[in-house]
């Protein structure tokens, strides 16, 4: 196992080789690796910038080419640091190019909770993983335009329903401030930073503990969860269904096409 990080983490003990790169040099490292895979010349000064040596990178490339089945596990240290989606795109390209020599894949390391599950469900329901806008009655996807942080920071939304998340403790302050300004409804088994800023907090049963559900493993394998305990609170699904039923009873202001889309939920 080769570990690439800007500092020694606990994973170093489990790794065979640790490559400590300079912060913000992910794209440069991956691009040099891509050049070495294709046996292209690499400028020494560009290698130095990364904090690694050409020998280290060449050895890494040789090991990857020799592997029977390689996997890149990548996390927020790659996708949310300088370069962001360009870093992820570069790594996916490297994985694709390595398939000329051996089998290689890339898999994102996900955060706490069921992030993979949310992506998977949105994907098979709409074709997109996140940042989906239903305003026209059909799904449209555009990160930066329809993504939650952007909508909140721009102040585009005038109400919010928060489910299975705590943006009040994770999003940039301008987004949190907007959630506090508008009527926010939060469904959560616990008191959180988001529940505190919400107009309405509905306590729900904890999925997997006191409510049934499905957790998705990082490799997208669904795991059915049977509740071990009983809860006096409703499940997230029951609450959303009841809100949906109540909304349907409201006078119709949508166009006919949109009404049909709403009924399919």
């Amino acid at each position: 196992m080769v570990l690439v990080d800007i500092r020694e983490t606990k994973s170093v003990k489990a790794s065979d080789i640790f490559l400590q790169i300079r912060p913000g040099k992910d794209f440069e490292v991956i691009t040099i690796l891509r050049a070495l895979v294709k046996e292209q010349p690499v400028d020494e000064s560009q290698v130095q910038e990364t904090g690694l040596t050409l020998e280290q990178l060449q050895d890494f490339v040789d090991r990857m080419k020799k592997a029977k089945f390689g996997v890149f596990f990548f996390g927020m240290g790659l996708s949310m640091t300088r370069g962001k989606h360009m870093n992820s795109a570069a790594l996916l390209t490297l994985a694709a190019e390595l398939n000329a020599f051996t089998k290689f894949v890339a898999m994102p390391m996900r955060g706490h909770g069921n992030v993979t599950g949310a992506d998977v469900i949105m994907r098979w329901q709409t074709g997109y993983p996140f940042a989906i806008q239903f305003g026209r009655g059909y799904p449209r996807y555009n990160p930066g335009e329809f993504s939650t942080v952007d909508l909140l920071v721009r102040g585009d939304v005038d109400a919010a329903l928060i489910l299975g998340a705590d943006p009040g403790a994770t999003m940039p302050q301008p987004a949190i401030d907007h959630l506090a300004r508008i009527p926010t409804i939060c469904l959560d088994p616990k008191v959180t930073h988001t529940s505190r800023l919400s107009r309405v907090h509905i306590t729900t049963a904890a999925t997997g503990i006191s409510a049934p559900g499905t957790g998705y493993r990082m490799d997208e394998v669904p795991l059915p969860l049977r509740p071990a305990l009983k809860s006096p609170y409703p499940t997230d699904e029951q609450v959303v269904r009841r809100i949906h039923e109540a909304v349907l009873k409201k006078p119709d202001w949508l166009q006919q096409g949109n009404r049909m889309a709403l009924n399919q939920v």
């Binding site: 912060p23 927020m76 996708s79 949310m80 300088r82 996140f130 990160p143 942080v149 940039p172």
Partner: peptide, 15 residues
């Protein structure tokens, strides 16, 4: 944290 996501949907979270 800054609110700009540079079109990616996620703000810069490291470095």
């Amino acid at each position: 944290m800054g609110g700009d996501t540079e079109g990616t949907g996620m703000p810069l979270s490291k470095g």
